[in-house]
Design a protein around this nucleic acid. Structure first.
Length: 628
RNA sequence: GCCGCCGUAGCUCAGCUGGCAGAGCAACCGCCUUGUAAGUGGUAGGUCAUGGGUUCGAAUCCCAUCGGCGGCUCCA
């Protein structure tokens, strides 16, 4: 349970903009407060209400299923859950019944009482509850908490009783059920969950519920869920005709439709230019490589589960690439490198394929084939701190260009099992941390959380409704230079091993665009919008003028469409709104006469008539600056 | 992969305990010539995911497969 709250460090509702057009309200919150906030939550009345409501739910379930076996039932971010082992699958009707029963129980205003008992007594109380018995064993050994994670001290075993229900529980709870407002409680869903999260163990039924102090908070919460649903990239992907995933093509394989294709092109073009300016070299690599390549790289040893079956060609096995690194390494190796050549930065938007279990696929966010904006840096040991500074700055620059404003970094350090010399690890970790400090980025250290081949920085952004997404990753790699025997010739004429850094900024383009869609709720900034302005003639006699000014604007590189259908202006505005086109240019008799357009924004604002040139300048400026 | 739910027109969804496949929107063809979020009439559109089974008869019941959704586990 302890990790549930680290995902967001501010309640999403704190940062939702009241102006609902994807404006990101910038809130500076000290990241060190994360742990404190979690702690605060666990001591709050709300936390006790939720935890207590979980007990009430368990009592209700027991009333309906006397043979129910109980696992655990904690409070979580927006509510609570409880895992049960039940004789049959629950239906949504069951949820209604359970909820009704809960409200009945709550009305009794029963008191919660705590009692400390011995393990022996506890075993007697829960003799028919195998999951509780297992928990008691864990507690008694002092080795495990309710998730099976090791804990330091040996806790005392306590019971909580309320009405007819007794549970093994460390609390805390509300004094009595009068503190629970039945109108602020709602059961949300049923889902499968493995006992202790272990897929080799019993699958239980988890009921998710939400509970609040005030019914108004419940309403807000449900409203928020609906808002999140509205900006779901799968929903918008269909509505705006952005992408599809087709049965016959295969699950987890994304088809980019023209509008999103254009946006990707624009994004790639922008990034290419920035990479060029920043001193990157562009490389390309094939989609498959011989088995021996993946042997050498170690992927067949460490990554095989995520790789597709080999293709046999003339007796040789080839594998579809799950990563680009081995190819880039070979580009480095293709010629002798002098210390004067370094640093080298090889960039490629490389499309990789990874086997993902069907249950984890999710729109564009989690797919089986995706394109990484990948790059590998090779540098001298003494260049490494600057190289890290550079890549971190560059990363932030790119992310800011797409409109993200709030970042958080995670520094993952050396795990127990690792390759590479300890002093290289120390240098690299220090360089990463120094760079984070210089960049004045809030960060958390995940001690021992690095990959076996090197430490890393992950960058997360926060989207318009407060969710965190990991985009950039900057990873050291002590493994591949060893395995492939990479060297450069130093000023002493001797071969030396270079440092290698692997980085992706947007991560996967599929996932990145999924995130962008949700962040902007489909209302993309003008520079990315497939259609930047649509011209809406009021009547047929304005069509020629509409086409004339469209051509004029197109000459400045603006993406313009003309809605010359025989529909009413209102219908055209409605369609343009639904397509979230940034600018609507309404033209009628008055505009035609004065070489004007009447501007309407997708926000609903209506700046009104202006000279065509004035509009053009305004639009070009917004595009150049990547604003709204 | 596992647990539960689901798959009907381009989209959103009706279609009850088996008895001739429906609506709204979109599309297409007209009429209307319009001033800031839906003018109006008509036409066309479906192997009811796929394959098998039960039945006189299956969109409906059963089985399998493929996909989707919510979770678990994992992750870009």
């Amino acid at each position: 349970m302890r990790n549930i709250f680290v995902r967001t460090w501010v309640e999403p509702r704190d940062i939702i903009s009241p102006h609902w057009d994807g404006i990101f309200l910038f809130l500076r919150k000290d990241i060190e407060m994360a742990a404190e906030l979690q702690n605060e939550y666990e001591q709050s009345e709300l936390y006790r209400v939720r935890h207590s409501t979980a007990h009430v739910m368990a009592q209700a379930v027991l009333a309906l299923f006397p043979e129910a076996k109980f696992a655990i039932g904690p409070a979580i971010q927006d509510g609570f859950y409880y895992d049960f082992d039940l004789p049959r699958p629950l239906t949504s009707d069951d949820l209604d019944l359970i909820e009704d029963k809960m409200k009945e129980i709550i009305k009794g205003r029963h008191v919660f009482t705590r009692e400390v008992i011995s393990a022996e007594q506890a075993r007697h109380v829960f003799k028919n509850q195998p999951y509780k018995l297992e928990l008691i064993d864990g507690l008694e050994q002092g080795g495990m908490d309710e998730d099976g994670n090791p804990i330091q001290e040996k806790p005392e075993i306590s019971l909580y009783k309320s009405d007819t229900f007794v549970d093994l529980c460390r609390g805390p709870h509300v004094e009595n059920m009068g503190k629970i407002n039945p109108k602020a409680v709602k059961l949300m869903s049923v889902a499968g969950a493995y006992w202790r999260g272990d897929e080799n163990r019993q699958m239980l039924q988890r009921i998710y519920g939400t509970a609040w102090l005030d019914p108004k908070d419940l309403k807000d919460y449900i409203w928020k869920l609906e808002e999140a649903k509205k900006r779901d990239h799968r929903r918008l992907g269909k509505d705006l005709d952005l992408y599809s995933v087709n049965d016959e093509v295969g699950a987890g394989l994304v088809l980019w439709h023209p509008k999103l294709g254009l946006m990707r092109k624009l994004a790639e073009h922008f990034c290419d230019e920035e990479h060029l300016k920043a001193g990157y070299d562009f490389v390309y690599s094939p989609h498959i490589g011989k088995a021996s390549l993946w042997e050498t790289s170690g992927h067949l040893g460490f990554y095989k589960e995520n790789m597709y079956s080999p293709i046999s060609v003339e007796g040789q096995d080839y594998f579809i690439k799950p990563m680009n690194c081995p190819f880039h390494v070979h580009i480095y190796k293709s010629g002798l490198k002098s210390y004067k050549d370094l640093p080298l930065r090889y960039a490629e938007n490389g499309t990789v394929y990874r086997y993902e279990r069907s249950g984890v696929l999710h729109g564009m966010m989690r797919v089986r084939g995706f394109t990484q904006d990948d790059a590998h840096h090779f540098c001298l040991p003494e260049q490494m701190p600057d190289e890290i500074d550079f890549v971190l700055d560059f990363s932030l620059h790119i992310l800011r260009s797409f409109g993200f404003k709030e970042f958080k970094a995670y520094l993952s350090t050396k795990p127990e099992k690792s390759v590479g010399e300890p002093e290289r690890w120390r240098d690299a970790e220090a360089a990463l941390e120094e760079a984070l400090k210089r960049a004045e980025l809030p960060y958390e250290v995940d001690a021992g959380g690095g990959a076996f081949y090197g430490p890393k920085i992950d960058l997360k952004i926060k989207d318009a409704i407060g969710r965190e997404w990991q985009l950039s990753t900057i990873q050291f790699d002590f493994n591949l230079p060893e395995r492939f025997g990479l060297t450069y010739v130093g000023d002493d004429g001797q071969p030396h091993r270079p440092y290698m850094i692997h980085r992706a900024l947007l991560g996967s383009l599929e996932r990145f665009f999924g995130i962008l869609i949700e962040h902007y709720a489909g209302a993309f900034p003008v520079w990315l919008s497939p259609t930047q302005a649509t011209i809406i003639p009021i009547a047929d006699r304005h069509n020629d003028y509409a086409h004339t000014i469209a051509k004029e604007l197109q000459q400045y590189g603006l993406r313009i469409s003309v809605d010359d259908r025989a529909d009413r202006m209102n219908a055209k505005i409605r369609d343009a709104q639904k397509q979230k086109i940034p600018y609507m240019l309404i033209v009628g008799d008055a505009e035609m006469e004065n070489h004007q357009v009447s501007l309407r924004l997708r926000s609903g604002d209506n700046p009104g008539a202006m000279a065509l040139e004035a509009f053009r300048e305004m639009a070009l400026e917004a595009i150049a600056n990547h604003t709204a």
